[in-house]
Computed example of a mutant assay.
Amino acid sequence: MAGHGDLMDRIYRHQRHVYDLTRKYYLLGRDQLIAELDPPQRGSVLEIGCGTGRNLLAVRRRYPQARLYGLDISEAMLLTAKAHSQGQHIVYAKADAADFDPRALFGEASFDRIFISYALSMIPSWQAVLASAVKMLAPGGELHIVDFGQQERLPQAFRAALRAWLAKFHVTPRAHLRAAIEQLAKAEGATVAFLPIKGGYAWRLTLKKQMSRVPAAA
């Protein structure tokens, strides 16, 4: 996915300096996601598509004991994330979210919480990213997602204008996101919660993996 990484670098080479200031008005649901992460004490938290590090810094403030990791394919974004996160004990790495070894990058085989905020709509192989993330969840772990929805309860004119504007930034809302998550959950025996935000402007999804079952004593 070197080509996709190059594309992200071209898009964000300059935008990264104003990204957080401009995106806060329309990337809805990010702070609600962070409030609901609730990782265990000293639990591991991975953000896929961490961008400027804005979300992980918010996680650090809310859960100061958590072990935090950020992954992104854009070197430009990671430069900003690392600069913003000095002294915050957040580990960042560059990799393709659909194909990476968490132990090699972070020294962790699995994570208690994984979250993806407005990144799946920019990743061509988003289904592979979801499948990989679910496999990396620890027993009892949770995958939290917020991204653009289908604007299903909003006026058609607004929906068309939003889609045209997002396309300029190579953003494509994933119409089958909910179905893909539910299929993965079924295969894992996990549960899924789905919450549309502002008439479907955005979608919040949470997959919760079961704890490992302890065999009954003979």
Results as ranks from 00 to 15, higher is better:
residue 147 D to P: 05
residue 171 V to N: 00
residue 113 R to C: 10
residue 217 A to V: 14
residue 205 L to W: 11
residue 204 R to T: 03
residue 140 G to E: 09
residue 14 H to K: 11
residue 113 R to N: 08
residue 195 L to R: 06
residue 118 Y to E: 01
residue 37 L to H: 01
residue 72 D to R: 04
residue 171 V to Q: 01
residue 76 A to M: 05
residue 117 S to T: 05
residue 88 Q to W: 12
residue 75 E to H: 00
residue 205 L to S: 08
residue 116 I to V: 15
residue 190 A to L: 07
residue 172 T to A: 04
residue 25 Y to M: 02
residue 71 L to M: 01
residue 38 D to T: 13
residue 132 S to R: 15
residue 182 E to K: 10
residue 57 L to K: 07
residue 179 A to G: 12
residue 208 K to H: 12
residue 131 A to P: 14
residue 8 M to P: 05
residue 36 E to A: 14
residue 10 R to F: 04
residue 116 I to S: 13
residue 82 K to I: 07
residue 179 A to K: 13
residue 180 A to M: 12
residue 99 D to S: 09
residue 192 V to L: 11
residue 129 V to H: 03
residue 138 A to K: 15
residue 183 Q to G: 11
residue 51 G to A: 08
residue 110 S to C: 14
residue 115 F to E: 04
residue 122 M to L: 10
residue 178 R to C: 12
residue 16 R to W: 14
residue 149 G to Q: 06
residue 27 L to F: 10
residue 157 A to R: 09
residue 19 Y to M: 06
residue 20 D to S: 12
residue 185 A to T: 08
residue 160 A to D: 10
residue 190 A to E: 11
residue 168 K to L: 05
residue 186 K to D: 14
residue 10 R to T: 06
residue 9 D to R: 03
residue 116 I to H: 10
residue 212 S to P: 11
residue 69 Y to R: 00
residue 60 R to P: 05
residue 164 A to L: 06
residue 189 G to K: 06
residue 100 F to A: 04
residue 71 L to H: 03
residue 2 A to G: 06
residue 31 D to A: 04
residue 176 H to Q: 14
residue 110 S to I: 07
residue 145 I to H: 02
residue 173 P to K: 04
residue 119 A to L: 11
residue 38 D to F: 09
residue 85 S to Q: 07
residue 88 Q to C: 12
residue 95 A to T: 00
residue 190 A to T: 08
residue 52 T to Y: 12
residue 67 R to D: 06
residue 49 G to K: 03
residue 110 S to H: 13
residue 161 A to K: 06
residue 131 A to T: 14
residue 75 E to K: 03
residue 36 E to D: 14
residue 83 A to E: 13
residue 61 R to H: 13
residue 135 K to A: 14
residue 197 I to Q: 00
